[in-house]
């Protein structure tokens, strides 16, 4: 049994099916990415998992306990960071965290230690006396993460935590999440910045129109997608992008590629090139044979590897409800 299990979750708002039979699971120490266009049902799923909303049907379980039936018990095991969270005026960073620590029932030295740990982990030390309303976006997100961690939850639910952050803040935030997973926390994270997720996620679920269209490790999904792409290419005569690399630079590379009738859209960078050719593997094998016969020292010839963004674009149609 996984630490976090979403089982056939559905949520309907009037005539809109926001979440439709969504299921996935992940373990402690894993970072699970939740990817989908706006309005796909990510936030609704996360809110139900956090116990803030009720499903129309299905269930979410954390350590075997239902977030629907045992919401109060499970709430203490969850840290939820919404995409847009409020702060209080006239409140310092330390007072903000102290309030949530008190609200979670932490008392005395236990609360002091928890605050010290959180401030240290989120590198908020120099800001503890600053008013929360004066923080930059990056620092606010760190504060939000600190609030999420203050009661030391087992499961973190982070909804678009890196939205609006500059590249440096994003990298730093990514590092923090990786560190939390290493410490044994199960992290569910959604983001529009798919490059971020690719870096840190062990598994992902891609959701569109409330339905999960793919789930598994990034590698597994890539394999599935590439197999599908190759199959489709063979059937429909479609073209694919191939990446080519030579053992050493050869000046004739452009000339040789230009002589190949089925090759187009050639881009050459030193001893590497990308080109479009038929998706049919037999045609690709024939092309490779001709290039070698032409004297090119080919050391790499493969269809381009899909990144998470390619997979997302391939699997979703951009429909919103």
């Amino acid at each position: 049994m996984s630490l976090v299990e979403i089982q056939h979750l559905s949520r309907r708002f009037g005539s809109v099916q926001a979440v439709d039979d969504v299921s996935f699971s992940f373990e402690a120490g894993q970072v699970f990415g939740f990817i989908g266009p706006n309005g796909a049902g990510k936030t609704t799923t996360m809110r139900i998992l956090a116990g803030l909303d009720e499903p129309t049907s299905g269930d979410c379980r954390i350590g075997g306990l239902s977030t629907v039936d045992d919401a109060d018990t499970v709430a203490r095991r969850i840290g939820y960071m919404p995409d847009d969270f409020g702060t209080y005026p006239n409140t310092t960073v330390l007072e903000y965290l102290d309030f949530f620590a008190r609200a979670y029932g932490l008392k005395g030295a236990r609360r002091d230690n928890a605050l010290a740990d959180v401030i240290d982990f989120c590198q908020l030390g120099g800001l503890s006396e600053k008013l929360v309303t004066t923080l930059s976006k990056g620092m606010r997100q760190r504060l939000g993460l600190g609030r999420t961690l203050v009661h030391d939850p087992e499961v973190l639910i982070l909804d678009e935590p890196s939205a609006g952050l500059d590249p440096r803040a994003r990298v730093e935030f990514r590092e923090l999440i990786r560190l939390l997973a290493r410490q044994g926390k199960a992290v569910l994270i959604s983001s529009h910045i798919l490059a971020d997720l690719q870096e840190i996620c062990d598994s992902v679920a891609i959701i569109e129109l409330g339905r999960v269209v793919a789930t598994g490790s990034v590698k597994d999904i890539k394999r599935q997608v590439q197999a599908t792409v190759a199959e489709k290419a063979r059937e429909a005569g479609a073209r694919v992008v191939v990446e080519l690399r030579l053992a050493q630079p050869v000046e004739r590379l452009r000339l040789v590629l230009a002589e190949q009738a089925e090759v187009s859209d050639v881009e050459i960078h030193d001893q590497a090139a990308s080109l479009q050719c038929p998706g049919d593997p037999d045609a690709q094998a024939a092309l490779l044979a001709r290039l070698i016969a032409a004297g090119l020292p080919v050391c790499h010839f493969a269809t381009r590897d899909h990144n998470l963004e390619d997979l997302f674009m391939h699997l979703t149609e951009g429909k919103v409800q």
Binding site: L94, G108, A116, D117, F121, L149, D152, L180
Partner: peptide, 18 residues
């Protein structure tokens, strides 16, 4: 609570505790 490995802090009393 999670702590950054290189800077694991000793328990520190919060300045809010008088």
């Amino acid at each position: 609570m999670a702590t950054a490995p290189e800077t694991a802090p000793a328990p520190v009393a919060s300045p809010l505790t008088p």
